[in-house]
């Protein structure tokens, strides 16, 4: 049995979501190839060095670089013949193309896999993580997206896989790339940060969100997250959203500030190792899952916390 892992990367760095997806693939087989699409050259070498990789496939084109789902799925389908399982990190990008691959191959998609039981049986969360469903597929080929936070990354070095280019299939695209508006930040990415400082509706404005949370995040070397309410209100950019319909994170330390703890938010952070809640309402549901709760106005609590960290 062979598994094809689709690499998640930014053109320069292989993200650890890829290393975690390789870890999930190792539960299925030791024949694991990694496909790097887009701007592949720098990243291919990193993928080849990852533990347990047999071969790295690379494919480059302008459409692949722009992350156009139609181009990526056509590429994956063109090489899928040699594999029993296609495993994709469950990022916004992965979720954009993986279901297409499954549809073209006429197989089920198994989304957000958190546990591999056997070659055809997988566990994944449903209902905002309030239930875990174990499903067994009857399809010969399997397409899965892997929730990276559920797996421990394989080592980034030590491997010595071969790298080979694959032909990019010709597709007539009816999609045109117009523009990208990426948030540039020196902070760690939410998905891989060890510490996350997350703010809610309580912060009240974009200036307050920045002014209060950033000094604390700087002290902790933390990524910044937000509730949906904070993003909807424009206090934070969309890709900060943690939750059922945003990012799923599991850092060592998650500090929720002025967040009530709606189930949709908890779905994205309840697997964090240690959860801290700072909220002025002692009845806020977030306290029911927090390891440490501080009932206080954030306006006094956060400056005090930033100071106490030295």
């Amino acid at each position: 049995m062979a598994v094809l892992v689709i690499a998640d990367h930014d053109g320069a760095h292989l993200r650890d979501t890829t290393l975690k997806t390789i870890a999930a693939a190792q539960k299925l087989s030791s024949d694991i190839d990694v496909l790097v699409y887009g701007e592949a050259s720098a990243v291919a070498a990193q993928a080849a060095a990852a533990e347990g990789v047999r071969k790295v496939l690379t494919a480059e084109s302008a459409e692949l670089k722009a992350d156009i789902a139609e181009a990526i799925s056509a590429l994956i389908v063109s090489v899928a013949g040699g594999y029993d399982v296609v495993a994709v990190p469950a990022t916004a990008s992965g979720k954009n193309f993986a279901p297409r691959v499954a549809a073209v191959l006429d197989v089920a998609i198994i989304s957000d896999v958190v546990e591999v039981v056997d070659a055809s049986t997988f566990v994944h969360p449903i209902y905002a993580g309030n239930a875990l469903e174990t499903v067994k597929t009857s399809d010969a080929k399997r397409v899965i997206t892997v929730r990276p936070t559920a797996f421990k990354a394989v080592a980034a070095s030590g491997g010595s896989a071969s790298v080979e280019g694959v032909a990019v299939p010709a597709v007539t695209l009816k999609t045109r790339f117009v523009s990208d508006e990426k948030v540039v930040s020196d902070r760690p990415e939410l998905g891989s940060a060890k510490v996350i400082v997350s703010g809610g509706r309580a912060l009240g404005s974009a200036d307050e969100f920045k002014g209060v949370l950033e000094p604390l995040a700087d002290k902790l070397g933390a990524a910044v997250g937000a509730s949906r309410a904070a993003v909807d209100a424009g206090y934070a950019p969309n890709d900060y959203q943690v939750g059922q319909t945003g990012k799923v994170v599991a850092p060592n330390l998650y500090i929720a500030i002025g967040i009530s703890g709606a189930i949709q938010h908890l779905a994205g952070m309840k697997d964090s190792k240690v959860i801290v809640a700072i909220n002025k309402d002692p009845e806020a549901p977030i306290f029911q899952i927090a390891d440490y709760g501080l009932v206080e106005d954030y306006k006094t609590a956060i400056p005090a916390l930033t100071k106490a960290l030295g």
Binding site: D10, A92, R176, V178, S179, D180, E181, K182, V183, N238
Partner: peptide, 15 residues
């Protein structure tokens, strides 16, 4: 809404 921010695409109808 994509990883890292926003992307704008033009898609020819039907879509």
């Amino acid at each position: 809404e994509v990883d890292g921010g926003l992307q704008t695409l033009g898609v020819t109808l039907p879509a």
